[in-house]
Amino acid sequence: MAYFIQQLVNGLTLGAIYALIAIGYTMVYGIVGMINFAHGEIFMIGAFISLIFFVVLGVIGITWIPLALLLVLLIAMALTAVYGWAVERIAYRPLRGSFRLAPLISAIGMSIFLQNYVLLVQGAHEKALPPIITGGFDLMQQGGFVVSVSWLQLIIVGATLLLMVVFTAIIQLTPLGRAQRATEQDMTMAALLGIDVDRTISLTFVIGAALAAVAGLMVTLQYGVIDFFIGFLAGIKAFTAAVLGGIGSLPGAVLGGLLIGVIEAFWSGYCPSEYKDVAVYAVLILVLMFRPSGLLGRPEVEKV
């Protein structure tokens, strides 16, 4: 039982990170109907920027942890958002209205490009960061097995839920959210009614990238080791999360992310862990086959 709860805690932490990335997939899919294949790499870039600025701040002497954390968070969100914006501007905007597979192929190209760009400028080695937020508490004890929860895990899950609430509110209540929902329903009509469609789509990518940067920061803090390749797997898992939750739905992305994290943690805990990725891919394939609209999504109607 204690082991079960420990896996659940670990799974929720991992799932919260997937959820943050999944929000980016789900928002972009909702609004332009494409899989932003490069989103995993945006997350990886966010992790790299976080790690770099932790090191830089440490060297220039800002060592009070809350301040350093806040600064890194802001810098990483801002600079990663520029990447998100640039990817959309360069690789996707010129393709609006091109043939069906064009944006997806362009996205795959962008993903390969970004991965190899980071490989070239930052090297192939794993980058490590010493633990910054340490400590935690013991949740329970049973038969000599202690279930421990670290402060960091609480922060990660808490921040994810907070961001989900904030962004759901943005989409429901603000003019930007209204513009997004209008663009999602009918791009041409929205443009006719005076909505700047290009700007709305750009902002969607910017928000998605900023959230991916938060996820990147959390991965850097939680696991302490990153390399240029982490975006590929995390991207697929987050995409699976978005599909599982129902693509286009924000709470669905968070729910899907948490579920994927928990599935992965339990699989590692109870089954041969080298097959944990297979478990996630299997979930992806099964969901797409039997319930393509996901848990919280609406069924899609094909129009001519």
Binding site: F48, I49, L79, Y83, V121, K127, A128, P130
Partner: peptide
């Protein structure tokens, strides 16, 4: 803004 973080800095592998 794109180049500054990733090209501007290169951390050592140990992260110090």
């Amino acid at each position: 803004a794109l180049a500054f973080p990733l090209i501007g800095f290169e951390t050592s592998d140990a992260g110090v």
